[in-house]
Design a protein around this nucleic acid. Structure first.
Length: 564
RNA sequence: UGGGGCGUCGUCAAGCGGUAAGACACGGGUCUUUGGAACCCGCAUUCGCAGGUUCGAAUCCUGCCGCCCCAGCCA
C-alpha cells in the first residue's frame, strides 16, 4: 500500500475547523458538487469533487450532488447519467442527497415575486442588446432602464404573464433593482429570469421562464442547508450577488468560498475543444484513453485511488497554478506499484535463437507475480524454449557507454530464466538486425549463477512458439506542448502525434491469455497496462498502456546527448 | 484610468509576529534477478520589490511592480 499521506492543510479546511470551533453552523458541515449537466466531467472536476466530498467525509458531514440545470437549451439527461457514474467511480457517495436546481423552480419563482413586492426587482422590456449597451463599461457607470420604475403591481402582472407564456423569448427579463453605477458589474441590475419556451429535461413544458445562475445558486444552497459553498475563483465577483439575494430575502445564508481551479499541463479541458476533438475524429470519443475526461482516464486504466491521490497532492489554494503531467503519472505509478502483478510482454519483438538449447525442448520456469513479496499471489509458469523474443531496444550491435543490455559478446540475464551470451547476429538487406544468436549457461537456471557472477543487465523475454499475440495500445500525452491554450497556433496542430501508437502484434507471455477485462498488470520494465474493458475478449485481451515506468536509462541517454 | 483577487524553492504548497513543513522535480549514494520499487543524503540565510513599525516580520503598515478574473437573457 501507498503510505497514507497526511492530507495537507489548506485554507478551506482551516475555515471549517474554525467554524466548528466557534460552532458557527451548529457543528454541521454540508458541501455540494454542483455540475451543469451539459458535458462530461474531466480531471479538473475531480479536484472539486475530491475537495467537496473529501471535506464532508473528513468532518462527518455530507456532500450533495446537485445538477445545476437552469438552462434547458444546453442540458441533457445523458450528461446527468455520465456525471453520476463518474462521481461514483471516483469513490464518492451522495447517499440521499441528490438534487436538481430545477427542484427549486417554484421556490425561485416565489422568491422573485417577493423581491418584486419589496421593490427590489422589475421587468425590463429592453432587448438583450439594449441591456448590454446600457450596462456601462469597466470604468463608466451604466444607465437606468426606462422600465426600472414600473410599479410593483405592473411588475407583478407582467412577470406573471411572462411565466404564463404570453411573451416571446427574449422580449423581456426580470431584473434585480440594485445599482446601475455599481463598480462591480454584477450588481448593475442582474437578470433573474429569462423567457425560454423550450422543454426542460426534468420539468418538461411546465416553465417558460428560467432562473439565472447567480439567483439560483445561492437560493439552492440555502434551501439545502449548505454550510460551505465551494466554487472556483472566477465566481469571486459573483459572491456579492450571492450575499445580496440571501440578505434581501432574509434566507439562511451559507458561505461561498472560492479556490483556484486545476490547470494540468499537456491537456486541454474546455468543453468546446474537447468536443471538437471528438467531432472531428482526432480521438475516438469522450472516453478515448487520451482524453482528460474521467471516462477517458478510466478507460485508459487510471484507478480512482490514483486520481484521489493526485488531488490530494496538488493541494488547494487561491493562486492560479499549473500542475505538471508528471504529478498525475507519478500518482498512478505509486498507486499501482503495490497492486499490479508483474508479467512479461515484448512490445517490439526481436527474435533470439539459443543455439545450444535443445531443439523442441520446452521448460516451464517459475516467475513470481510480486518479486518484492513472492508469497503474495504466488507465481505463474513461463515457458522457455530455443526461440525467444526480446525487446528490440534491448539489443545494440555497438552499445554506447553504460548500456548494460545485450550486445555482441555480452552476457545478460533473461528474467527468471538463464544467463545468455550473444554469439552472433543476422541482418536483412537493409542492414537491420533481424535475429540474434546466443548461447545459454545451463547452470544459471532461474537467474542465479553458482559461481556468483551477475550480469549488469536483466531483460525481459517471451518464448516465441508459446507467445500470446495481442494488440497493445501505447498512450501518451494528448498534446505536444505543455500549455496548448496559450499557444498562438490552432490547438489541433499541437496534438501529440505519438499520443497513440497501436502495436497490433505484441508478444506476451501466455499466462496473459487469462487476463480479464479491466485487470491491470505491470509489464516488467515497460509500464502499467490495463486490459481494455470494451475491446478485450476472453483469451484475447487488448492492453492499454496506462503509464510507462520511470526510465532512468532514458535520462542517461539524454544527458549523453547533451554532453556531446 | 473601475471592481475583485493573487505573488513563499523549477512546479505545487504549509506558515497567521518568535526566527522557512511537506510533495513532485532535480543531484548524489545504498540495495536490487525490473536501469522499476525501496532506503539514505542534499536541495529557499530567504518569502515580488522598496521603505516603515517591532527586541524580533513571509507574517503588521505604506508605496510600488507583476499576473489573473469581470461588461451572457452561460454556468
Amino acid at each position: 500500500m501507498i503510505t497514507p499521506e497526511i492530507a495537507p492543510a489548506n485554507f478551506i479546511r482551516n475555515i471549517i475547523e474554525n467554524d466548528l470551533a466557534t460552532n458557527k453552523w451548529g457543528g454541521r458541515v454540508v458541501t455540494r458538487f454542483p455540475p451543469e449537466p451539459n458535458g462530461y466531467l474531466h480531471i479538473g472536476h475531480a479536484k472539486s469533487i475530491c475537495l467537496n466530498f473529501g471535506l464532508a467525509q473528513e468532518f462527518k458531514g455530507s456532500c450533495h450532488l446537485r445538477f445545476d440545470d437552469t438552462n434547458p437549451t444546453k442540458e441533457e439527461t445523458e450528461y446527468v447519467e455520465s456525471i453520476e457514474a463518474d462521481v461514483r467511480w471516483l469513490g464518492f457517495d451522495w447517499g440521499e442527497d441528490l438534487f436538481y436546481a430545477s427542484d427549486y423552480f417554484q421556490a425561485l419563482y416565489d422568491h422573485a415575486v417577493a423581491l418584486i413586492k419589496q421593490g427590489k426587482a422589475y421587468v425590463d422590456d429592453q432587448s438583450a442588446e439594449a441591456i448590454r449597451a446600457t450596462r456601462g463599461t469597466l470604468t463608466e457607470p451604466g444607465k437606468d432602464s426606462p422600465w426600472r420604475s414600473r410599479t410593483v403591481e405592473e411588475n407583478l402582472d407582467i412577470f406573471t404573464r411572462m411565466a404564463a407564456g404570453e411573451f416571446e423569448d427574449g422580449s423581456r427579463v426580470l431584473r434585480a433593482k440594485i445599482d446601475m453605477a455599481h463598480p462591480n458589474l454584477h450588481m448593475r441590475d442582474p437578470t433573474l429570469f429569462r423567457i425560454r419556451k423550450v422543454s426542460h429535461h426534468r420539468t418538461g413544458g411546465k416553465w417558460c421562464v428560467y432562473p439565472m445562475y447567480d439567483y439560483t445558486h445561492c437560493i439552492s444552497d440555502s434551501i439545502e442547508g449548505i454550510t460551505h459553498s465551494i466554487c472556483t475563483l472566477e465566481f469571486e465577483d459573483n459572491r456579492i450577488l450571492y450575499d445580496w439575494f440571501l440578505d434581501e430575502l432574509a434566507l439562511y445564508h451559507p458561505q461561498q468560498i472560492e479556490f483556484a481551479r486545476l490547470n494540468l499541463e499537456y491537456v486541454v479541458v474546455s468543453k468546446r475543444k474537447l468536443l471538437t476533438l471528438v467531432k472531428e475524429g482526432h480521438v475516438g470519443g469522450w472516453d478515448d484513453p487520451r482524453m482528460p475526461t474521467l471516462s477517458g482516464l478510466r478507460r485508459r486504466g487510471f484507478t480512482p485511488e490514483s486520481i484521489r491521490l493526485f488531488c490530494e497532492r496538488i493541494g488547494v489554494g487561491r493562486k492560479e497554478s499549473w500542475i505538471g503531467m508528471d504529478v498525475l503519472e507519478k500518482a498512478v505509478r505509486d498507486d499501482l506499484n503495490p497492486k499490479a502483478p508483474r508479467v512479461m510482454g515484448v512490445l517490439d519483438p526481436l527474435k533470439v535463437v539459443i543455439d545450444n538449447y535443445p531443439e523442441g525442448q520446452v521448460e516451464e520456469l517459475e516467475a513470481p507475480y510480486f518479486p518484492d513479496d513472492p508469497p503474495r499471489m504466488g507465481s505463474r509458469k513461463v515457458p522457455f524454449s530455443r526461440e525467444l523474443y526480446i525487446e528490440r531496444e534491448d539489443f545494440l550491435e555497438s552499445p554506447p557507454k553504460k548500456f548494460w543490455r545485450l550486445a555482441p559478446g555480452r552476457e545478460v540475464r533473461l528474467r527468471w530464466a538463464y544467463f545468455v551470451t550473444c554469439t552472433g547476429l543476422v541482418k536483412n538487406d537493409q542492414g537491420e538486425v533481424i535475429e540474434v544468436h546466443c548461447a545459454y549457461d545451463p547452470a544459471t537456471k532461474g537467474g542465479d549463477s553458482p559461481d556468483g557472477r551477475s550480469p549488469k543487465g536483466t531483460i525481459h523475454w517471451v518464448s516465441a512458439p508459446q507467445s500470446l499475440t495481442a494488440e497493445v495500445r501505447l498512450y501518451d500525452r494528448l498534446f505536444a506542448v505543455p500549455r496548448p491554450d496559450s499557444e498562438e497556433r490552432d490547438f489541433r496542430d499541437l496534438l501529440n502525434p505519438d499520443a497513440l501508437k497501436i502495436i497490433p502484434h505484441a508478444a506476451l507471455e501466455p499466462s496473459l491469455a487469462g487476463a480479464r477485462a479491466g485487470e491491470r498488470f505491470q509489464f516488467e520494465r515497460k509500464g502499467y497496462f490495463f486490459a481494455d474493458p470494451q475491446d478485450s475478449a476472453p483469451g484475447k485481451p487488448v492492453f492499454n498502456r496506462i503509464v510507462t515506468l520511470r526510465d532512468s536509462w532514458a535520462k542517461i541517454v539524454e544527458a549523453q546527448k547533451k554532453g556531446r
